[in-house]
Amino acid sequence: MRLPSPGAARRHCTAQDTRRFVDILIQQIINGLVLGSIYALVALGYTMVYGILGLINFAHGEVVMIGALSALTAIGLLVPSGLPGPVVVLAGLLIAIPVCMAVGFTIERIAYRPLRNAPRLAPLITAIGVSIVLQQLAMMGWGRNYHTFPALLPVTAHKIGGAAITDLQIIIVLTAALLMAALVWLVTRTRLGRAMRASAENPAVARLMGVDVDRVISFTFVLGSGLAAVAGVMVAANYSIAHYAMGFMLGLKAFTAAVLGGIGNLGGAMLGGLLLGIIESLAAGYIGDLTGGFLGSHYKDVFAFFVLILVLVFRPSGLMGEKVAERA
């Protein structure tokens, strides 16, 4: 029962210490990138809706939760079929995406469209209302317990120097990057993207030019919700946990990321998401040492929000907020 004791003979070697420090730093940045990729995908949903409607869709975090839980349900049904793990997860994802898209479309139709010309506070309140309703419905449907994501994907850890990254984490970062690139292409290079940009700039003029603004808005919600579904499955797969309340904090973080990058700006949401993920990881890793143990690693959220405040004080429109032309 005695444990093997690695490094029993402890050496004081500065070169080795430096290398270890770098290894750990790289590991923290990898942790941050994985987390940040997920934040960025969710942040895109906030920023796209804000870009066009000037509305914070606070129910967006709940869409992520619905994506995770519906994928989990589908996966639970598919596991007995004996299909290979990655196929089952992909099938779960392909079911979660349309489910979330339908939810996003419905939210916009029921809660936001009737208030299109109402004072700005009204849709904000319905957004919070929708968030509560979705969370409670999920609690009724999926129960209050934590659901575990079956181990279907390889989690073999690859070594990068002294740092480790799993297949799943590589998939998460690559998928997020691919989706973001596709989104940028869609917004900047397609007819629909042009309609989105036009609606964002001036809905009234866009309508006069023959753009069906309502349809563009619906499409924006559907698109954002699809990304949210992917993010939800990523969170559930990476942490192997999903529950009805998971969307709230994630949504808040993603919203923070969107504001950090400059809300309404696509590149800003991506940058903000990645930055927030990395800041959080580094804060949790080093805050104790930096403050001499005065603040512990549980203050990482505080630290992330503190950075947000700093950015807003010095750049009220966010890091990339000034490039209004790129708004979508």
Partner: peptide, 27 residues
């Protein structure tokens, strides 16, 4: 070798575990 903290609602421990890893604990 180190004392780290989290909350009873957290699901992401990558950052604190990386910190833990840097101290090479036996347990």
């Amino acid at each position: 070798v180190t004392r780290e903290y989290t909350t009873d609602k957290e699901t992401d421990f990558a950052a604190i575990l990386t910190k833990v890893k840097s101290t090479r604990p036996d347990l």
